[in-house]
Amino acid sequence: MEKKTNYSYIGIAFIILVFGILFIPKIVDRISNGDIIRTESRSDSASERKTKAEPLAFIENNGIKRQVPNFSFTNQNGKIITNKDYLGKVYVIEFFFTTCPTICPRMNANLVQIQNAFKEFENFGVASFTINPKHDTPDVLKAYAERYGIINPNWHFLTGEKEAIYKLANEGFYIYAAENEDVLGGFEHSGNFALIDQKGYIRSRKDEYGNPIIYYKGVVSEREKVGDDGEKEEISLLKEDIKKLLNE
């Protein structure tokens, strides 16, 4: 009886040995190739499919998808830039002025952070329109761009006729901009960004009720999370949606 038990142990040990010889090298090889956790891979793939299956909304007026209006302005290098120069690129729109003492420095710091996050993409850009073109000449804009560390060749700081810029802001994008000598800095404007796809359409994600948010709040940083007035940051959302449009 004792010998039979010993034979059983020997048989079990032999099976374990054969299993180790045959299968352990394969398991090690799967680990080396990053293919060991199948459930996580399936979960990641499902998440990625869900993201791709939910494209950003188009902004519409009376059923017509809104595109960037035609514009033509001079950039910080003295070159004429039009809306056609941005075709084929995903880009962010802002309205600002270089002497702004309030929200503009925060907005542009956030845009620099976005610039750095997408520095590998040749088809990402920014269009910054000054609402104080009398002061913000190409030379002034160039110095401003250098001060902020602008390295993206598709980030243009644009100046031109004041009436054309204000019409573009208030009627083209519905992003408020106005001259007001009673406010700090002499001008007031929205702190929102607009996101444009590669075909020139204004795009955004939808809110919890299924409505387009239209704009992205540009003042509160991703690091701050929440502003002094309780406003939540949307820079992280903007980054996610830029990536989505770049992959369209």
Rank of each mutant, 00 (worst) to 15 (best):
N152P: 01
R30M: 12
N70M: 11
L195R: 00
V183Q: 04
Y216L: 01
N192E: 06
G172L: 04
T39F: 15
I36Y: 07
N33M: 13
V220P: 03
W155L: 06
F118D: 02
G78Q: 03
S236Q: 14
F124P: 11
G200K: 09
T39N: 08
G230R: 15
L17A: 09
T130W: 03
I242M: 07
S8G: 07
G172H: 05
F157G: 03
N75M: 05
S128N: 05
E171K: 09
K4S: 01
E231R: 06
G172E: 12
K243N: 13
D229Q: 05
G186P: 01
K244C: 06
N154D: 11
E181D: 15
Q198C: 04
R38Y: 05
T159S: 13
A57M: 09
S45V: 15
K3W: 00
D229P: 02
G200P: 02
G78C: 10
G191I: 10
L245H: 01
S8T: 01
L22P: 10
N62Q: 10
G11T: 00
S45G: 06
K50R: 12
E122I: 11
Y7F: 01
I80H: 08
K162I: 15
S190P: 07
S41F: 08
E120I: 10
R42E: 09
I175N: 02
I235V: 13
K243P: 14
N192C: 13
N108C: 08
E233A: 14
S236N: 10
D229H: 11
I235D: 07
L22N: 15
N116V: 08
N70T: 13
E163K: 10
V183D: 02
V28R: 08
K26Y: 10
F118L: 14
F118C: 02
Q115K: 12
K79A: 07
D182V: 11
A53D: 14
